Amino acid sequence: MTVIRVGMADLNVADGEDSLRTTGLGSCVGIALYDPQTKITGLAHIMLPTSANPNETNRAKYANTAVPLLIELMEKKGANRRRMNAKLAGGAQMFTFAGQSDLMRIGPRNVEAVKEALRLSTIPVVAEDTGGNCGRTIELFSVDGSLVIRTAKQGVSTL
C-alpha cells in the first residue's frame, strides 16, 4: 500500500490498495470522491471558495475549479461520475474577529462552495465532518472509500 500525499491547493487520484492523505485542513476543505465499483478515489485540498479567473493556473486551489478537475482525472482512470459519492472534512472557523464580516468566514464559505460544485456535478455528499474550530488530517482509502479523520481535540474518527 502506498500513501499518496496531497498538499495544500493540490489534488490526486488513487486506486487499488493505495490511500490519499492531506494534512493542515483548517479553513481548507478536503474533498474525498469515491467510485465503489472501480475503487478509484480522488482527494482535493481546496483553500478558497471560487476563482473568477478563467485562466487560473492552479485549479486545485478553488472549490469551483477543483471539483470538475478531480472528476475529470478520476474518469481518465476509469471511474464513472454517476457512481461517485463525496465525503467532506475541514472548513473550520479557525479564528474569530470582532465585527466579523462574511469575507472572514472562509471555512464555512469553502464548505458551501464545495457542496454547490458537487451539486452541479450531481455527486451526492454521503458524509461530512466540517465546521468547528480545529484542524484536521484526513486519509482516504481506495479499498473501501473510508475516510479517516484525525484531530488534536477529538481524536480519530471514520466516515
Rank of each mutant, 00 (worst) to 15 (best):
S101C: 02
T65R: 04
A92V: 04
A98Q: 12
M74K: 08
A32M: 13
N64T: 08
D102H: 05
T38Y: 13
I40G: 04
N58M: 06
A52T: 14
G42C: 14
A44D: 05
Y62M: 01
V29I: 14
H45A: 13
V114P: 01
P49I: 04
M84P: 06
P68R: 10
A63R: 02
R83T: 12
I71F: 08
A89W: 00
P49Y: 05
A79N: 09
A52N: 13
G78L: 13
T22R: 04
A52I: 11
N58P: 07
S27M: 07
A52M: 15
A44W: 02
L73H: 12
G107N: 02
V29T: 12
M74Q: 08
K115H: 09
G90D: 02
Y34I: 07
L69A: 11
V29A: 03
G99M: 00
I106Q: 01
P36Q: 15
T38M: 14
K87A: 09
A32H: 09
F97D: 02
A66W: 03
I31V: 14
S51K: 09
T23H: 12
A86I: 12
L33V: 08
V114M: 06
I40H: 10
I71V: 15
I46T: 12
P36A: 12
R83E: 10
K77L: 11
V111S: 02
G30R: 02
I71G: 03
Y62T: 01
Y34S: 05
L48K: 06
N55P: 00
N80V: 12
S27E: 12
A44V: 05
M104E: 12
D102W: 01
M47T: 10
K61Y: 07
T96W: 14
E56M: 09
Q37I: 14
T22W: 02
H45P: 10
E75P: 04
I40D: 03
G99E: 02
N58F: 03
T41G: 12
N85S: 15
A44M: 07
G24R: 10
R82G: 07
T57K: 15
G90Q: 01
S101K: 07
E56W: 05
R109N: 15
G91E: 00
S27T: 11
S51D: 08
G24P: 11
M84N: 06
A66R: 03
G42N: 11
H45Y: 10
G26R: 11
N80P: 03
